[in-house]
């Protein structure tokens, strides 16, 4: 991959995984604002010259490396584990199989374990279904979905983003990239009246708003560098790390030159749901220095357990 062969990423979208904006937007003012923000993004995608919509979903965990959805026509009816009572989500998504297969190869070239999945009835996760259904309802543009490996951490996630860049550049495709993730992800553990939905705690709300300021300023790389703090402060410890900002920065470009726009920020059963766009621009913002090394190839976890033991 030559340095000059840069991929063209038109803009990025950060959006929440829960199904209320799709299934019950009218249930609260907040949900309908999120829905309106999704609709705005859909319009912008339609008006763009995107060749592919690329989704990284935090609600699709994988174990065997990184899974890449490659079924040409994925057709099923999805039901959410928690919000099944809001209704079913029938879908038909058209995948860019050419992209998916090259993406696998490019992952492998960078040392990642990866595989495509092409099975009728494969359970596409709630977050991907909600995002693709709202952002690209008529399959005007082919898409591709990437899983989030349960065990992967910073290096692997950054290298995954770089493999996306390799693939887009190789295929000369213009992309809209989508991260499906909550900000704070703690939900209420009881059923609530949607009209009374609010962010679970003041602390979660404070942190979410700080993150939104960064997004608004286009400081994507700064957010990427703050991922471990975000994980410790406002993420339920379900996986090893908060990875969306790592992936988004590695995919879009590890800098702070973006025009950010927060289209909506609302509670989704207590979690922080935001619809945000980031468009590459000029002019740099940022007042932080970081010394974490950038990483181009994944060489596996350093095995700490075996080091320093008595021979």
């Amino acid at each position: 991959m030559s340095e000059t062969n840069e991929p063209e990423i038109l803009f990025g979208i950060y959006c929440p995984p829960h199904p209320q904006p799709l299934l019950s937007p009218e249930a609260s003012e907040g949900y309908s604002k999120l829905r309106a923000a999704y609709d705005e993004c859909r319009k912008r995608i339609e008006e763009s010259e995107a060749d592919i919509i690329l989704v990284y979903s935090t609600t699709w965990p994988s174990i065997i490396g990184h899974q890449i959805q490659a079924l040409e026509k994925a057709i099923w009816t999805h039901v959410d584990d928690d919000f099944h009572y809001l209704g079913s989500m029938p879908y038909e998504f058209h995948m860019d199989t050419e992209f998916a297969h090259s993406m696998k190869e490019n992952c492998e070239k960078r040392g990642l374990e990866a595989r495509t999945v092409e099975y009728e009835g494969f359970p596409i996760d709630t977050g991907s279904v909600v995002a693709l259904q709202l952002l690209n309802p008529d399959n005007r543009i082919p898409s591709c979905i990437l899983s989030s490996n349960m065990y992967s951490n910073r290096s692997e996630t950054i290298v995954l983003g770089k493999a996306v860049r390799d693939t887009l550049a190789q295929q000369n495709k213009k992309a809209v990239v989508v991260v499906v993730s909550s900000l704070s992800n703690r939900m209420f553990t009881e059923h609530i009246d949607p009209k009374e939905d609010r962010i679970h705690s003041q602390k979660d709300d404070d942190w979410n708003r700080k993150i939104l300021e960064f997004f608004d300023d286009g400081r994507l790389e700064d957010l990427s560098q703050l991922s471990r703090d975000i994980h410790g402060q406002i993420r339920v410890q379900k996986v090893v790390a908060y990875k969306p900002a790592w992936w988004l920065a590695a995919t879009m470009g590890q800098h702070n030159n973006y025009d950010g726009e927060v289209l909506a920020y609302e509670a989704l059963h207590g979690s922080g749901g935001a619809v945000i766009t980031l468009t590459p621009s000029t002019g740099s913002v940022g007042d932080k220095e970081f010394d974490e090394d950038d990483v181009e190839f994944y060489r596996g976890d350093r095995n700490v357990l075996d080091k320093g033991t008595l021979e």
């Binding site: 699709w60 965990p61 994988s62 174990i63 065997i64 999945v117 099975y119 009728e120 009835g121 494969f122 359970p123 996760d125």
Partner: peptide
């Protein structure tokens, strides 16, 4: 229905 394992669909 059909159950497809999300991690080991193969």
């Amino acid at each position: 229905s059909k159950s497809v394992d999300p991690v080991f669909p193969n």
